[in-house]
Structure formats: C-alpha cells, structure tokens
Design a protein around this nucleic acid. Structure first.
Lengths: 170, 170
DNA sequence: CGACGATATTTTAGGCTTAAAATTTTCAAG
DNA sequence: CTTGAAAATTTTAAGCCTAAAATATCGTCG
C-alpha cells in the first residue's frame, strides 16, 4: 500500500491516521446511495401523479417561495444550475401554462418570470403530496435521529465547502 | 407567522405538530444539498484532472472491482441505470480505448466488456486521487461522527426502501 | 456622442438519462 | 422442426445539463 506524502502544514488530519481513506469513501458512497433511493422515488411519483419532472418542480418551488417575480438569472443562481438550463426549463413551463414570462420594465435585457394562477394551484397540490412522500420514506427515523442527521450533514457540507474553498455560498 | 417558544423545542417538536412534515422535508433537502456539494466537486475535478465524466468513472469502477468480464446487462443492474444508458457509455469508453467489448462465447445476444490494460492503469490513478479528494472534503468529521452517519444513513435508506416497497435490493 | 467592459440571456455542441419500441437470439414445448 | 415467450441489447424520442460562444443591452468614462 502506497504511503501518501501529506503536506506538512495545517491540514494533516489524513496523515495522522495511517488509515487509508476507506471510511470516508464508504460514507460518501452511502450518502450517494441514500439520496439515489429517495430522489428516484420522488421523480417517479412526480411523473406518475403529476406528469412533472423534478427540475420543473424545483423551478416552480423557487417561484412559489419568492415574494416577487424573478429574472432568469436570479432563478439560475438559486437553483444552482446554468443559465442555459433555466432558459429551456422556462420555455417548457411557459408552454405548459404554469408560469408566465414578460420583459422587465427596468432592463430590456432581462425577463421576469412568475407562476400563473394555475401554476400556483398546481404547485400547491404537488408540494403537499411531496411532503407526504418524504415523510413516509423517513418514517422510521426518530425525531432525535433526524436532528442528529441534520447536525452532522450540516457539518459534512461545511467541511466539504471548506475543502473546496467555497466557504461562503456567495 | 407563529413564534415558537424557545424552551420547548428540544424533544417534543413532532408531537406538538402531529402532521407537519417540515422536519423530514428539511432533512431531505439538506441531504440533497450535501450530496450536491460533494458530487459537484468530484465531477469538476474528474473533468479537469482526467477529462473523464462521473458516469464513465463509475462504469470503470464496476469493471475494476469485478473479478471477470461483465455483460452490459450486469453492468446496468450494478450501476442501477437503464440498459440504453450503458450502451452509450460503453460505446464512448471503447472509443477512448479504456475498455474492450467482445461477443460472449456462450450467448450470441450478449457482449462482454472489461477494462483494457490502459483502462486499468488509468482507473487506478483516478481512484487514488478520488479517495484523496473525498477524504479532504470530509476531513472535519471525526471517526465517531462518520460512524454515526453511516449508521443513520443506512437506517434512512432502509426506511425509504421499506416505504417504496423495495425492501430487498433483489 | 462613442467606445468599452459588464451583465442578461440565448444558442450551440456534446454528453447523460429514461421509457418504450424494435431487433436479435435463446430456449422450451409441442 | 416450429412456434412463441423471454432475455440481451440497441434504437428512438424526449428531456436535463453544462461550458463556451454569440447576441443584445446597459452604464460609464472620456
């Protein structure tokens, strides 16, 4: 087994334990698997119950939560996806009549999007079901376990962000 | 909005609000966000350091771990993706010279795929780096915290599978 | 005014992903 | 042998996603 030459300065945690990275790797794989199971089922049910994809649901959720109409740029930042991606999603949702898009009165470069009345009703129905699905899937976890997971996952995310150099979301 | 009294909130949250799925939903969102941060960075680094995508890395990992050549069907089952998906990935990896594909001697419907010598070397290099990246990103978690997360995530996955009716992987 | 860098969005090219239909081969029953 | 269901794979149609280039507009500095 190959010894790793760790940098001598601040972050020598990995080198301190002669352990290889097995535990961390296994944790990552388990986190990933866990997310796959839940997300897969959410996608399936959104599709079968509402004929909607998860990305469209996410976009509508952003608009639903927002107090005012949003530009495509704001949307893409909040959803953490590329601009071009949002362009396509908005196209399709407008075509479905669930959101509306109009030029910004302030800036002729920008477009403002918001839920239509139908989009609002539709999203509310989906969100209610979605909450039930998640609650069912996590039903075997006690309140205490949920709290522990919340805390440790927050720490995990913070640790990852720090290593990435992305300490603050922006 | 309702203010929540500070002294009460430790133990009895869920009991106080019997049919509110807020905690489960928040846990799900946090799990998702956590995975996004780590996965995003892994994808970025695989692309920049090795010009490889995560799906191709996953496919090679399956072949690397397997004792023998595998059919496309076995691959798609282990990777938990569709058959058509594997067809395309294999096409591209063969074209890159990282895996080879030959007809099964037993069954003319099936193809056997395995890593080439170069694919094997290349995967080993990537896997080593990948382990380091993950270990760095999870460096702030203690051994005990990792163990707790492993246990609770296993329970989470089991709970979700049970709710889905997917109790045993097969 | 006119040029120029910045910003908002769209387009482009390529890859990943799925469900469902189509193709080829296997295998078993008649 | 022949027929037909089942299995392995590919194809198809549609959508999601990104990085990078292109387009259009804004705002400012001379």
């Amino acid at each position: 087994m190959q010894e790793r030459a760790a940098p001598l300065d601040a972050e020598t945690k990995v080198a301190e334990r002669p352990h290889d990275h097995k535990d961390e790797l296994r944790l990552w794989l388990r986190l990933f698997a866990c997310k796959e199971v839940i997300e897969g089922e959410v996608r399936r049910r959104l599709r079968h119950s509402f004929d909607v994809t998860l990305p469209r649901f996410d976009l509508m959720a952003q608009l639903y939560r927002a107090p005012k109409a949003m530009t495509l740029g704001e949307l893409s930042q909040r959803m953490m996806v590329s601009n071009g991606n949002v362009t396509g999603l908005v196209d399709r949702l407008v075509e479905q009549g669930l959101i509306s898009r109009r030029p910004s009165p302030k800036d002729r470069r920008a477009q403002l999007v918001s839920l239509t009345a139908e989009g609002r009703r539709f999203f509310r129905a989906m969100a209610r079901e979605n909450g039930d699905w998640i609650a069912d899937m996590l039903a075997d976890l006690s309140g205490e376990e949920i709290e522990t997971l919340m805390r440790l996952l927050a720490k995990t995310k913070a640790s990852a962000r720090k290593a990435i150099g992305n300490g603050v979301p922006r």
